[in-house]
Computed example of a mutant assay.
Amino acid sequence: MSADQGGRESGASLRLGPQGGWVQVPDGRWKRSWFWMKRVWDLFRGDRSLIAIAALATVLNVLAAALLFGLAAALLGSGHDMRLTVGVGAALFSYPSTAVSTYCNVALLRMAQARFDGRHCSLGDGFRAANERLGAILGWSLVAVVVGFLLRQVAERIPLGGVVLSWIGGVAWSLATMFAVPVLAVEDVGPVEAGRRSLEIFRARWGEGLVGTIGVGAITALASIPGILALFAGIAVGGAGGIAIAVAGAALLAAAWTTSRAMEQLYALAIYRDQVAGEPSFGLGGEQLNDFMKLKRRRGR
């Protein structure tokens, strides 16, 4: 029996095409989590197309924020409270920002899906795949924005414990939906089904989900320190030199944030692939994927 056939039958090995052949996935939640973390980092840093699409999402969000906050300031005029301007700008920005991020992430994951399988996928192919899922992307973005709005209302309207409840709800929502974008990118489902499927996968792989979330967050925090220091140093120095230092700090922060967001999605895709298929063949329809999940649960995987 060949090594490839042994990997397929045992389910103990997964193929990451760009890395070549089959690779052994270690046992244990922590070891598996760091294994996938290193794999997706190697994939991301070695692929300019993935970096470009992640950077594009950041640039579009920055431009949208500047445009919509500027529009809010123009509509309200200079006589209004700055907090009101920020609030209106945030309300205007919320949905476009979420939709743009989700759209770019779906394109990113479709490209990464091809890379994992050892196939070529250009930027154009990634965006065409995202265009095909546009309705589901816009629907999911609306769901996410509505949930965020409801959580903010809880924080504002419930005295004392509202902020705590809102924070707990936000964390629970983030964890439960961490696989929603991979589901949207790979499966032909709508926004509600994507949320349900994400929760189903999280229940099965909550350990890896938590480790990945905490790991990416910790690494991002460390990577952000130089940018934060440079930003505050630039403000303290002032003048043309201070502006240059502050701009460099802001660029470092943007790079750290961009990498963090991309790593979160790529890591979720890796865990999704491992959970849903457990092998390098992903040409399954939605019904077949659900049947495969049920079979794996019966086997105790």
Rank of each mutant, 00 (worst) to 15 (best):
L142N: 05
G21R: 03
P280C: 15
V40I: 09
L63Q: 05
G286W: 02
T258Q: 09
Q5K: 14
L16G: 08
V145N: 11
L222E: 04
S33K: 06
F69L: 14
W41R: 08
T58H: 11
H120M: 04
W257K: 11
D42N: 06
L108N: 12
S33G: 05
F292V: 06
A185F: 01
L295R: 15
L295H: 13
A3M: 08
G118F: 14
E187P: 06
R297E: 04
G217A: 12
A244C: 07
L184M: 06
F69N: 09
R128G: 06
A230H: 03
Q265G: 03
H120Y: 10
F35T: 11
V237C: 00
W36E: 01
S2M: 08
I214D: 10
G239K: 10
V147I: 14
V143S: 01
I201K: 00
F232Q: 11
V59Q: 09
I168E: 07
W30Q: 08
G77L: 13
A240W: 15
V40L: 03
W167S: 08
N61H: 04
G249F: 11
G21E: 02
W140R: 08
G139H: 04
G162S: 05
Y95V: 12
R110F: 02
R301T: 04
T102L: 13
L60H: 14
F232A: 05
G139V: 11
A107E: 00
G283F: 00
A268V: 09
R298K: 08
A270C: 03
L108K: 07
G126C: 00
G242S: 05
Y95S: 10
S10I: 14
W140H: 12
L43V: 00
V23K: 04
W22P: 05
A218V: 06
S10G: 02
R133D: 09
F202I: 06
I158A: 04
V186S: 01
G170K: 12
A55Y: 12
V163E: 03
G217S: 13
G70N: 10
F44M: 07
A250G: 14
M111Q: 08
V183D: 10
P226K: 07
I51S: 00
R203Q: 05
R261F: 07
V40W: 06
V189W: 04
R203K: 13
M178L: 12
R157L: 15
L14R: 14
Q24N: 03
M1A: 14
L269F: 01
A256R: 02
W206R: 13
V143M: 12
D117F: 02
A64L: 12
V147D: 01
L269I: 02
T177L: 12
S141R: 06
V147P: 00
Y103P: 02
G195R: 03
W30A: 15
D291E: 14
D125K: 05
G195P: 09
I53R: 07
V59P: 08
A107H: 07
V146D: 05
A221D: 00
L175M: 15
S10D: 02
P18T: 03
L84T: 15
L138Y: 13
D42G: 13
L210D: 00
L123H: 05
N290E: 14
L92E: 03
L60P: 12
G135C: 10
R83L: 09
W36I: 02
A90L: 11
Y103Q: 01
S174I: 03
V86G: 05
E9Y: 06
F35G: 15
G148R: 05
L295P: 00
V171L: 15
A176W: 11
R196N: 08
P191E: 07
